[in-house]
Design a protein around this nucleic acid. Structure first.
Lengths: 140, 140
DNA sequence: GTGTAAATGATGACGGTTTTCATTTATATT
DNA sequence: AATATAAATGAAAACCGTCATCATTTACAC
């Protein structure tokens, strides 16, 4: 059984072709952030005939299992990324939709302090910086 | 003409009953953050027979005019708040859906620095801290 | 008052996502 | 290896928040 198979099994899921292939796409794709539709199209290109509903289901199961993270970006559609255990935030280019990641311990710490000040028990946080990336600025 | 009427007029919009009433709801409602549906229901309670499509249109126009801000919270549905000119971020209670606001200049500054480091021209940013508010913690 | 562009309401469309349900498949057990 | 059974799948329809269409109504400049 492959490494991926073990991840799937550990999540309490049966090892099926759709699950193995979705995981493979996420691992081999040059784009780290993919929508369900992106994954679906990549599967079609690979010659795998897997339904879109299954892709959505599998991605949600992987999210529940902690294998992937879901980013809900502006305007209601989601992208997924392989979870690497390191929290990070995102910079999104509003022109080309490219996504970059960053980690900033100062911000992390301030967020924790604010939650405490307000009496909140923080479960999560999401920070998106929107802007125009270097390449898109140079193009125009 | 009321104060509100002037705001609407300044936005280049005709002063109509639906617009006055939507603005009134946003001002008098005890909840600062309302979805289009919330506003629509509040209008019905007031006895105003205004269509949901109009509520959406008016809120979008108010957003364009800078009278309200739209928050896109987790999973694609939006809430609106009266714009007071002061940028702030949000704490959301995942239990009771209450929303609190905060301002943190340290975070603001770090965000600007990160955008510069990454070569991004920042247009916007959104920061949400999710957690359980004080009241909900005490309840359980 | 009147003309004209703008605004409204009802309804249908839309897009991403989820549910339904009949069929197929993985896996534990014989 | 055959079988039983719960889980997984695919196709299609349902969903939900939001937006567009279009015929009718309204605000406001003249």
């Amino acid at each position: 059984m492959s490494m991926e198979g073990q991840d799937i099994k550990k999540a309490g899921l049966k090892i099926t072709l759709p699950r193995l292939k979705v995981l493979e796409i996420l691992e081999v794709s040059e784009q780290r952030h993919m929508s369900a539709e992106d994954v679906y199209k990549a599967l079609l290109l690979m010659g795998e005939d897997i339904g879109l509903a299954t892709v959505y289901r599998v991605l949600t199961q992987f999210e529940d299992a902690g294998l992937v993270s879901r980013l809900s970006i502006d305007g209601g559609h989601a992208v997924f990324e392989l979870e690497d255990g390191v929290h990070h935030d995102h910079l999104l280019c509003v022109s080309c939709n490219q996504i970059e990641e960053f980690v900033d311990e100062v911000i992390e710490q301030r967020q924790r302090s604010i939650a405490i000040e307000k009496g909140f028990k923080m479960t999560e946080h999401s920070l998106y910086i929107y802007g125009i990336c270097k390449q898109c600025q140079e193009k125009n």
